[in-house]
Measured scan of single mutants.
Amino acid sequence: TTYKLILNGKTLKGETTTEAVDAETAERVFKEYAKKNGVDGEWTYDDATKTFTSTE
């Protein structure tokens, strides 16, 4: 399943996707990605669109 991440950081904005077996796995991948890029925001998830959003 393809999951999408929308980053709305103070210094980094953008989108990326990952293939994962479930939302929990995708969330771990995306949170590590955000951390590596210095984004520490509030997380939301929309199951209908398989989209995570992190907003600082």
Rank of each mutant, 00 (worst) to 15 (best):
T17H: 08
T51K: 02
T1G: 09
T18Q: 05
K13C: 14
F30P: 00
T49L: 08
E19V: 15
F52L: 00
T11M: 10
R28H: 09
D40F: 15
K50M: 07
E24N: 09
L12E: 07
N8S: 09
L12S: 09
K36N: 13
K35P: 01
N37L: 14
F52C: 01
T16P: 02
D47H: 11
K10L: 15
T51F: 01
K50E: 02
T1Q: 11
L5N: 01
G41V: 05
K50S: 05
E56T: 07
E27A: 10
T16Q: 09
L12G: 08
L7M: 10
Y3W: 06
E27Y: 15
T2P: 04
D47A: 14
T17I: 09
L12F: 15
L12Y: 15
K31P: 00
N8K: 11
T16F: 15
D47R: 08
K36M: 13
S54T: 15
L7W: 12
T11Q: 11
Y33R: 01
V39H: 10
K4I: 12
E27S: 08
T51I: 05
T55C: 06
S54G: 05
A48W: 06
E19C: 15
D46K: 02
A23T: 10
N37V: 15
V39P: 02
G9H: 14
D47I: 08
L12K: 09
S54I: 15
T2C: 14
T11R: 07
Y45L: 01
L5T: 01
S54L: 15
I6S: 03
F52S: 00
K36T: 10
T55E: 07
T1N: 12
D22I: 03
K4E: 03
G41F: 06
V29N: 06
D22A: 03
T51G: 01
A26R: 00
D22W: 03
Y3F: 12
K10H: 14
F52E: 00
F52V: 00
R28K: 13
E32F: 05
E32L: 09
K4L: 07
D40T: 12
T17E: 09
T51A: 03
W43M: 08
Y33M: 04
T55L: 07
T53W: 10
L5H: 01
G38S: 06
A48Y: 10
E42D: 13
E24K: 12
T17C: 12
E32T: 06
A34V: 07
A23C: 14
A48Q: 11
L12W: 15
V21C: 13
V39R: 03
F52Q: 00
I6T: 04
E42H: 13
Y3M: 01
W43I: 06
L5E: 02
E27T: 03
V39A: 06
E15I: 13
T17P: 01
T16W: 15
Y45T: 00
K35V: 09
T17K: 07
F30Q: 01
R28S: 09
T44C: 08
N8V: 13
E56A: 06
